[in-house]
Amino acid sequence: MSSTTTISSPSPRTRIAWSGQTKQKLLAFASLLALIVVFSVLKPDAFMTTDNFIGILQSTTVVGVLALASTFVIITAGIDLSVGVLMTFCAVMGGMAMVNGGLPMWLGIPITIGVGALCGAISGLIITKLRVPPFIATLGMMMLLKGLSLIITQAKPIYFSDVEGFENIALGSWMENLIPVLPLPNGVVIFILVAVLCYIILNKTVLGRYTFAIGSNEEAVRLSGVNVNRWKVWIYTLAGGICGVAGLLIASRLNSAQPALGQGYELDAIAAVVIGGTSLSGGVGTIVGTVIGAFIMSVLVNGLRIMSVAQEWQMVLTGLIIILAVYTDNLRRTKA
């Protein structure tokens, strides 16, 4: 059982902590490579192109960022069903600030992220102070925020055409000027930056330490004299803020805030987290795993589309892959 240790050992000097973490990442990474190899062999001319790879990266960003947000919550043995709709709500509020309110982008961006953090904090307070289980609290928030998005926009999209440079947040490429051979879109760079930030927070800070500890044994943490409720609120706040980043990314890509969009993204995000080896029962999970999980999802969708598999069958296959991923993870755990 020793290799179930997927916890944040700050310095992986010992065999046990080291091999556990590495094994899990290797397995997920091997699956990702296997998928890429299969599609490359089956459709070499269409799949193995720079354009297609950049397309895959681009399409991973939004769900990927939402999955990063969900990773924190899921490691605490919680769940956040509101991330998809919260992303849209943030985009809508960003639109209200920048389009309707005419605020400049340098102010609009922090407002968008701040709205996400605030909503996350509210979820956290509902969970800790009102003691509503995370599933119900965030289900309620999901419905509530979806309604609010539609009310605020009167169910009409907000277009960002007049906000100069807004499109560049996701679609432009600063990298193109810096490193011409690697013309990554900004959205992808932002996803990578958020992932690095999440990695640092989860593994190097006290918030990350408590995230694992709460998921591992909440009551023991409370009886150690830690203010569990306060840290939980912070964790949901952080997740909400990250959803704000996703809101910016999707609004920029569509150059609009689409109030009806968002529902369903939370399940894709949870799927990516779970494929990445994070346990829904808490205490276990990695950022690298989540990133790989998100890529597995989008490589699968992309590859199947290139193979001209009907969308209905894509869904069937994705469902099977999720079950298979968690099953193999279980096998690995019990054998080890």
Binding site: V206, F212, S216, N217, E219, A220, V221, S224, V284
Partner: peptide, 21 residues
Amino acid sequence: KQLGLATGMPVEANITLSSLK
């Protein structure tokens, strides 16, 4: 096991849990 330790975490994390500050 239920109330004193986060048994899935390493020794070092458990020892320092209430003094992290």
